[in-house]
């Protein structure tokens, strides 16, 4: 019955408010109403900033061997360096690497891998999904069978097999993540595009003899964006976790460019000998990043859900 009440209230016609409220502005307004989500967003921006500015912010370049001092190896948090006197707030690993710096650089690599693979996967998935929905019929069936097949295998399994074949490397991890993720976007976009496809404005565009490409990407696609954003926030957290897992298992990024996952793996051997900090602090950084993204994603899902906001 909310429906009919809403419809009774809806056609507000009078000289509509002069200000043009862009949909994005409305979303932003509603987003900030949830303090938890704002905390998540601030955390995420902080993490992203740290990752972006790691070379500027980090006390040392952890991969410049000249800056490392083997004498500082395995120092617990808060100890000072024997050589330079600088304080290692989060301790050092066995090679005397400052963990603060290592985490900053690790974040940088983790986020880089995740965002690049996200961008590529979204692009591929969107094109495929919109095409399937717009043309329908056999094209749609074929594409969706491939998507189903892809989604029926666990992502980690596919990624492991791929990397076993391709070998280590940042580019290869990105490729593996794109391959395991595009299908999610394809399915999401196709789902909402099929709903939008049936609406009259698409028929109106066809009546106006606009090209298929124009209708697909200028009319259909922009209306499928909200669910895509929600899936993207979930998937980027997944991508970070997946990359960390792969690197932890030793098939991900190379040792010369360690991500958070590899840092955790490196410290894993020393956990039982009491040097918890080598694994623990990169682990906390990873968890904080993923939680921050999920908080933002949850709120976005609420705000963008057309059934909740009318």
């Amino acid at each position: 019955m909310t429906d009919s009440i809403a419809s009774d209230l809806e056609p507000v016609g009078t000289p509509a408010p002069a200000r043009v409220d862009h949909p994005a502005k409305r979303v932003a307004k509603q987003f900030v109403e949830d303090p938890v989500a704002v905390v998540g967003l601030v955390l995420f921006l902080l993490v992203a900033l740290v990752a972006l500015l790691a070379p500027v912010l980090a006390p040392q370049n952890p991969y410049d061997l000249a800056q490392l001092d083997i004498m500082d190896g395995g120092l617990p948090p808060g100890e000072a360096s024997f050589g330079t006197g600088m304080t290692y707030w989060l301790g050092t690993d066995t090679q005397g690497r400052d963990m603060v710096s290592a985490i900053m650089y690790g974040l940088r690599i983790s986020l880089f891998v995740a965002t690049v693979s996200l961008g590529l996967a979204i692009t591929i998935g969107t094109v495929v999904g919109v095409t399937a929905a717009y043309f329908g019929g056999r094209i749609d069936s074929l594409i969706m069978r491939i998507v189903d097949l892809q989604l029926s295998f666990p992502a980690i399994l596919i990624a492991l097999i791929l990397l076993a074949l391709l070998g280590r490397g940042v580019d290869k991890v990105v490729l593996a993540l794109v391959i395991v993720q595009w299908a999610y976007y394809a399915r999401t976009v196709r789902g909402s595009a099929i709903v939008e496809r049936r609406k009259d404005y698409i028929d109106a565009a066809r009546c106006l003899a606009l090209s298929d490409r124009r209708i697909m990407f200028r009319h259909l696609l922009p209306n499928c964006v909200p669910p895509l954003i929600v899936v993207a926030t979930v998937q980027i957290a997944q991508a970070i976790a997946l990359e960390a897992t792969l690197s932890f298992l030793g098939v991900g990024v190379p040792i010369t460019e360690p991500s958070l996952g590899l840092l955790i793996a490196n410290g894993y051997d020393y956990l039982l000998s009491g040097r918890y900090w080598i694994s623990l602090f990169p682990g906390i950084a990873l968890v904080v990043t993923i939680i921050a993204i999920n908080l933002v994603g949850d709120r976005l899902r609420d705000v963008l859900n057309p059934r909740l906001s009318s």
Partner: peptide
């Protein structure tokens, strides 16, 4: 639409 006729009905039934 928007005249309040349905809302009046819903109000009588306590279904607002």
């Amino acid at each position: 639409s928007g005249s309040g006729k349905s809302v009046t009905g819903f109000s009588i039934l306590g279904l607002v």
